[in-house]
Amino acid sequence: MPQQVTTVQFVKLPPPPPPKPVVQPRIVPPPPIPKPQIVIPKKPKPKPIVHHKPKPRPKPIVHHKPKPVPKPKPAPHPHVVPHPAPQVVKSPVPTPRVAPVSGPSPSAIAAYSQALHVLIQNNVVVGEMVRQLGLSGSVRVSFVLGPQGGAAQDVRVVSGGANPLIRRDALKTVGQLKYPPFPKSFGSAPRTFEVVVQINASN
């Protein structure tokens, strides 16, 4: 078998370069530390006091009234000469004469009625049964008198006196008396009167 042959050639290498000089770094000293400056703070000047002026009050709103619109002047009317109206001559009307009314005055009627009431009350008739039972009451009685007075006519009970015994005594009292004549001012016509008769068992 053939053998492998390895050829070796010697090559001349160039000389190595000279070593570079070692440069040591230069040490730079640090800068000096500056001394701190002490600064004294200045006192602030006091601010001047400013007095604020008061705000002016708002002026009231004045509502202006609208100006009146001038009224148009009326057109001048043509001058009319008035004609005098015919005068009517009135005949004088005679004033009616009022005849005086004759009759009694209210005071005269009141005085006569009071006299009748006193006369009746002073002559009340109280029956035996009314005394025994001890009854009492008032009855309004109406009656008619003529101008000459005398006996009463149309005697009747108007109101009061629920007990028939009291009503009977009241009618008997008014019917048995004689009454005075009318005053002259009453006239000649008959008149109706009403009186209240008090009936009491103790009378």
Score class of each variant (00 low, 15 high):
His83Met: 01
Ser202Val: 14
Val174Pro: 00
Pro17Trp: 14
Pro74His: 00
Lys178Val: 15
Pro48Thr: 11
Lys178Gln: 14
Ser202Asn: 15
Val93Ile: 15
Arg97Met: 04
Ile49Phe: 02
Lys43Asn: 15
Val50Gly: 02
Asp154Ile: 07
Lys71Leu: 07
Ala151Ser: 13
Leu13Met: 04
Lys90Met: 09
Pro36Thr: 03
Pro70Leu: 05
Pro147Ile: 01
Leu171Asn: 00
Pro36Asn: 08
Tyr179Arg: 02
Val144Ser: 11
Pro25Asp: 13
Pro15His: 10
Val50Tyr: 05
Val130Gly: 03
Val124Met: 05
Gln9Cys: 00
Gln176Thr: 13
Phe143Glu: 00
Leu133Ile: 11
His117Met: 05
Arg97Gln: 11
Gly134Arg: 12
Ala189Pro: 01
Lys178Cys: 06
Arg26Met: 12
His52Glu: 08
Pro164Met: 00
Val5Phe: 07
Gly134Lys: 09
Gln37Pro: 03
Val23Ser: 12
Gln87Thr: 12
His52Gln: 14
His77Leu: 03
Gln9Glu: 15
Ile38Ser: 05
Met1Ser: 14
Phe182Ala: 02
Pro29Lys: 11
Lys45Asp: 06
Phe10Thr: 13
Pro78Asp: 05
Val158Phe: 05
Thr192Pro: 09
His79Pro: 02
Pro41His: 02
Phe10Leu: 14
Ser105Gly: 01
Pro183Gly: 00
Pro104Leu: 00
Val62Met: 11
Asn122Met: 08
Val126Gln: 05
Val141His: 01
Lys73Asp: 03
Phe10Ile: 11
Pro48Tyr: 02
Met129Ile: 06
Val126Ser: 04
Pro68Thr: 02
Val158Asn: 04
Pro46Thr: 06
Ile38Asp: 11
Val141Arg: 00
His83Lys: 08
Ala151Cys: 07
His52Ala: 07
His52Tyr: 08
Pro70Tyr: 10
Ile61Arg: 05
Gly103Gln: 09
Val158Arg: 14
Leu119Gly: 01
Gln114Lys: 12
Leu177Pro: 00
Ala151Gln: 12
Pro104Arg: 07
Gln114Tyr: 14
Pro180Glu: 12
Val69Asn: 04
Val158Pro: 01
Val158His: 06
Pro181Glu: 11
Val141Met: 10
Pro60Asp: 15
Pro164Trp: 00
Ala170Trp: 03
Ser138Thr: 14
Pro106Ser: 15
Val144Leu: 08
Gln176Ala: 09
Phe193Ser: 07
Ser91Glu: 11
Ile109His: 08
Pro31Asp: 04
Ala110Arg: 05
Ala99Ile: 07
Pro180Cys: 15
Lys172Thr: 11
Lys35Ser: 13
Arg167Val: 10
Asn203Val: 12
Ser185Met: 03
Ile120His: 01
Gln87Ser: 10
Pro29Met: 10
Arg26Tyr: 05
Pro100Gln: 04
Lys35Arg: 13
Lys71His: 06
Pro96Ile: 03
Val11Glu: 11
Val157Tyr: 04
Lys59Ala: 15
Pro17Glu: 11
Pro34Asn: 09
His77Asn: 08
Pro25Ile: 13
Ser105Cys: 02
Val144Thr: 15
Lys172Val: 04
His63Phe: 09
Pro94Met: 07
Leu135Arg: 07
Pro106Tyr: 01
Pro86Lys: 05
Ser102Ile: 12
Ile61Val: 13
Pro76Leu: 01
Pro14Ile: 09
Val8Asp: 12
His52Gly: 02
Gly160Leu: 02
